[in-house]
């Protein structure tokens, strides 16, 4: 156990090695490690954020779906109502039309009847007159009896 210059040599080596390590070895390695740790932390945070965003988007999608369903239900409801309305309207119109047709037909019928009646009346008058002529076997002054015949016809 003799002390000699090895001690000094080792001490000088020590300082040189420590200096080299502190200048060229430690900073790049620890820098890369710190940077990676930061990157990983950022990545984790981003993943968290993405997860939150996804949840939010999902919630939103569900909401929108619900809203769309509601809207669709409203629309269908409205359409149904409108359809009913249209049917009702059509029915009303048809009924009205029918009524109108009926009325006009009735009026026509009445007209026809009246006309027939007039005709009949005229015919009956002339028949009556001719009948009377025949009965009386004489010519009756038509003009003189026309009043009489008119009254008769009106009574028919």
């Amino acid at each position: 156990m003799n002390f000699n210059m090895t001690l000094v040599g080792q001490a000088i080596s020590f300082f040189l090695f420590v200096w080299f390590c502190a200048k060229y070895v430690w900073p790049p390695i620890i820098g890369a490690m710190d940077e990676r740790a930061e990157k990983i932390a950022d990545g984790l945070e981003a993943a968290d954020r993405a997860k939150r965003d996804l949840e939010l988007a999902q919630d939103k999608a569900v909401d929108q779906l619900k809203e769309a369903k509601q809207e669709a239900a409203v629309l269908i409801d409205q359409a149904n109502k409108r359809a009913g309305q249209i049917v009702e309207e059509a029915k009303d119109k048809a009924r009205e039309e029918g009524d109108r047709l009926k009325i006009s037909a009735q009026a026509e019928i009445e007209q026809e009847v009246n006309r027939a009646r007039e005709e009949l009346r005229g015919k009956v008058a002339s028949l009556a007159v001719s009948g009377a002529e025949r009965i009386l076997k004489r010519s009756v002054d038509q003009a003189a009896n026309s009043d009489l015949i008119d009254n008769l016809a009106a009574e028919l």
Binding site: N4, M5, T6, G9, Q10, S13, C21, V25
Partner: peptide, 27 residues
Amino acid sequence: FMAINLDSMFFSLLLGGLFLLVFRMVA
């Protein structure tokens, strides 16, 4: 005191140098 242990110095420097070389390459 004015003597030096060549073997100690050799292996000490060799191993220290090896350490620094490997770590420097990685760094």
